[in-house]
Design a protein around this nucleic acid. Structure first.
Lengths: 209, 209
DNA sequence: GAAAAACTGTACCGGCGGTACAGGAGGGGC
DNA sequence: GCCCCTCCTGTACCGCCGGTACAGTTTTTC
């Protein structure tokens, strides 16, 4: 019971790194068992096929992802009262966390899955979709709190605004990986921060009035 | 000579659609030749291996991509004189073009390649990197023209601002695909447009003064 | 110490990427 | 009318990989 979990985790660790570098189709089971130091039979004891591995990988990734956002934004919430300032601080903390990653962001499994849709069953695609909807829900909640206090200087749809956070994150990851510039992702988060600031912060002129 | 080009193009067409749906690793040569109606020998006459296919695919994709941006933004340039208004119009045209795609954006090969890095040789990764740098260069040029006339309301690095266009595009594609909501991409472009507008347009308050 | 969990070993299948090589159809130039 | 070049087809083969099957063994847990 306990030992099994550990091996399973080790397989998932190796698999996650491999999949983010080579995609699902480019990652062979043989290579995973070689690196994990397990036999093929051992692998199939834990996962009945590659699809099941993908499912476990994606679920674990999403859980971890959610946990990180929970931590960052609840910490920002604790430090600052105002919802706008708290969100801006959260983005700052996020960008710092991302720029502290030594080799850059390893890649997002949700993006990997969406570029592999036809290879997986409906359950995985549904899980993936729900992960993006959860991001939307999370950021939407934050923008609702902000909009209860501030009025945006331009009309925006709140869901689209929430999605923009996810979009800049995903896009930033792609750029960072393609450019081999780890910092690009953190910089993009800060660009997004500038946008949110501009959108909600009363202008100097208004304050003067 | 003529016939060969045609077959080659047909292979690339089939391969591009397949790769964007299943990734490189998930796309088999056998399936490509089945759909193209060609034999395996015929395929290898045109491309000596999968890596060469990837190279041709990526180069063609990038060229086409550049062509589309050229058309859209030069058209916007013709219609409007002011560099800011011209860029905003370009984003509008781009979002319209994207929302007119019946099945949504099929996916970006540059993103696919960056999630497959370890599978390809250095040449392909370099090509991919240069494609992203070309986007940066393109949008940087536009923002330079804008900044010659307008002053941003918040301090921004011009390269990061240029990268944000690419980031929102790439991120929007990921979200659109994952959510199965074709419109999300177009909406994100318009969100970016709102940002650029806010960043450069003199506020109402200033105009009143 | 027994039962259950967590594996190992072996043998096998079919699909796929890739190689090799021989040969043929069709068109353009001489 | 012949030749050569491009553009393929056909056949045979290799080794890797995903996956199956299943019997046997070690390790953990209670």
């Amino acid at each position: 019971m306990r030992k099994g979990e550990e091996t399973r985790t080790r397989i998932l660790d190796v698999a996650e790194a491999a999949v983010l570098q080579k995609g699902f189709g480019g990652t062979s089971i043989e290579e995973l068992i070689a690196e994990t130091g397990i036999t093929k039979s051992g692998f199939f004891y834990h996962f009945k096929d590659k699809n099941e591995l993908a499912k476990a990988l994606l679920n674990r990734y999403i859980e971890n992802d959610e946990r990180i956002y929970d931590e960052i934004f609840s910490r920002a919430r604790d430090l600052v009262d105002d919802p706008l300032q708290s969100f801006l601080l959260g983005l700052k903390l996020l960008s710092e966390l991302l720029s502290d990653l030594p080799n850059g962001h390893p890649g997002c499994l949700v993006a990997t899955v969406c570029y592999y849709e036809r290879l997986f069953d409906r359950e995985i695609r549904e899980t993936n979709r729900n992960a993006v909807l959860a991001w939307r829900h999370r950021f939407r909640g934050m923008f609702e709190e902000i909009m209860a206090v501030y009025t945006p200087r331009e009309p925006v749809h709140i869901d689209q605004l929430a999605d923009m956070v996810s979009a800049v994150l995903e896009g930033g990851i792609v750029l960072s990986k393609a450019l081999k510039e780890p910092n690009t992702l953190a910089e993009q988060i800060l660009m997004l921060r500038t946008f949110v600031k501009l959108l909600f912060q009363p202008s100097v002129e208004v304050l003067r009035a």
